[in-house]
Nucleic acid binder design. Structure first.
Length: 423
DNA sequence: CCTGTGAGCTGGGAATCGAG
DNA sequence: CTCGATTCCCAGCTCACAGG
């Protein structure tokens, strides 16, 4: 494998060069001092360039406030932003087949693109869709006052390790209200917004959440674990005013959205397609309709998404067990490639001529599995051209010491994005 | 003995932002 | 500037066991 510097970069990737040019891309991404390094990987009879630099760092993580909902394993908004900006124009359609909390489509909508989102877990739409229709805070406040609260209500399972009884009754009242509105078809944007915010305020480790101190909201805590945490910290759940918390978070979510961005989001939301399908079979998406796909699939079987979201699923009356049966969890790389090969065939069908796929994978199993190299042949087999692999190298400042994990030893320490083009 | 598999186990703190 | 709230900060690790 040879390594060269600053040569032979395709024009459309020119912005990745950090020693030249100006504009938003350069100010937002990349380390100018580091410079872009290029190496070539031989995959079958293809010589694929890898562009290596620090395109986005922890210091650059600040993005639009509208993204700030917690969800396990989602990429920074700067990742889709970069590709949307570079490879699409206003009005183009941007798609994410593994949409999760909706980072790609929200960012695309904010930037005036049309969007299609898919995720097998219905929680994804619940968290994404409401953020296309930004409500007036006064309406949120008014609605919160109108929702009936019954102090005697309790969850059907024991949640006393997380919530004060009065908080729990508020949560269950809200859960019941939303379910009833939804089932009767009378749910509006304000209801959906409140549900989205509440889903994100269930547990966390600050007073801005409904629960007693748990772990941060992107980490699942089981009731049994929470009992131990409570013992260790000598804590018991205090009352939390759910209405106040929902209103406060609502305010913070929309705090730096401009009028234009709200308008863009609304327009994108109105024409948006939200699917809850297996990413291999998305027949409702027309042939050749997508200009750009930015996505990050599940990496093998490392994260148990439905289990991770057990409480959020409960709050939204979703059967987490049912979902977990539908989620494809590939244990081996071969099995994973089989599934993703089909996903790529579907992506090829829906991608417009001249359109792109930016397919992000991280390293798993201590870097022993280089998923990016496995992805290249899958895209090629589906009919795409592989235009290169972008590697975001980052000195992570990870702070999780839960298992004695040190920075840059475990977890995902690089973003590896494989770029495909449909000629 | 080596490798793959699946069940079971693990639980805080540093960095950053922004309100005051 | 200070201080408190908040943050896509672990896509994990270990070990027993089966089968080659």
């Amino acid at each position: 494998m040879q390594t060269t510097r600053q040569i032979d970069i395709p024009r459309y990737l020119a912005e990745f060069r950090l020693d030249e040019g100006t504009g938003e891309n350069l100010s937002l991404f990349g380390d100018k001092k580091r410079g872009t390094e290029i190496e070539y990987v031989q995959i079958d009879d293809h010589r694929i360039p890898r562009y290596i630099n620090e395109y986005w760092t922890s210091g650059q993580r600040q993005a639009s406030s509208i993204h700030e909902v917690s969800y396990r394993a989602c990429f920074k908004p700067q990742v889709p932003h970069f590709f949307i900006d570079l490879l699409t124009q206003e009005g183009d359609t941007v798609y994410d087949p593994f949409s999760g909390r909706g980072t790609t489509v929200i960012e695309a909508g904010r930037l005036g693109r049309r969007v299609i989102a898919n995720d097998v877990n219905p929680l994804s739409e619940i968290l994404s869709r409401p953020r296309f229709f930004i409500p007036d805070l006064k309406d949120v406040e008014k609605r919160l006052e109108e929702i009936p609260y019954y102090s005697s209500l309790r969850a059907e399972m024991d949640l006393s390790m997380f919530f004060h009884p009065d908080t729990e009754s508020e949560i269950v009242s809200l859960k019941n209200y939303i379910l009833e509105k939804r089932q009767s078809g009378r749910e509006d944007h304000v209801d959906s917004w409140i549900r989205m915010v509440a889903t994100n305020r269930l547990t966390g480790h600050s007073p801005g959440f409904f629960s007693v101190y748990t772990l941060p909201p992107n980490q699942a805590v089981s009731p049994e674990r929470q009992i131990k945490i409570n013992e260790k910290r000598h804590q018991k759940p205090e009352y939390r005013d759910t209405r106040k918390i929902i209103l406060k978070k609502s305010k913070s979510l929309i705090k730096n959205l401009t009028r234009k961005e709200k308008e863009n989001l609304r327009k994108a939301g109105e024409s948006a397609l939200f699917l809850t399908e297996d990413a291999r079979y998305t027949g409702r998406i027309p042939d050749g309709s997508v200009q750009l796909t930015v996505t990050s699939p599940p990496f093998l079987d490392v994260v148990q998404y439905s289990q991770d979201n057990w409480l959020r699923c409960w709050f939204n009356s979703i059967d987490a067990e049912e979902i977990s049966k539908k989620i494809t969890m590939s244990r081996t790389v071969e099995e994973w490639c089989g599934v993703m090969g089909d996903v790529f065939r579907e992506l090829f069908r829906i991608t417009r001529k001249g359109g792109w796929v930016a397919f992000e994978v991280g390293e798993v199993r201590g870097g022993s599995v280089k998923l990016d190299e496995h992805v290249v042949p899958l895209g090629l087999a589906a009919g795409f051209e592989c235009e290169g692999i972008l590697i975001n190298l980052q000195e992570f400042t990870k702070t999780s010491n839960i298992w004695g994990i040190n920075n840059n030893t475990c977890g995902t320490n690089t973003n590896r994005i494989v770029m495909f083009k449909k000629l």
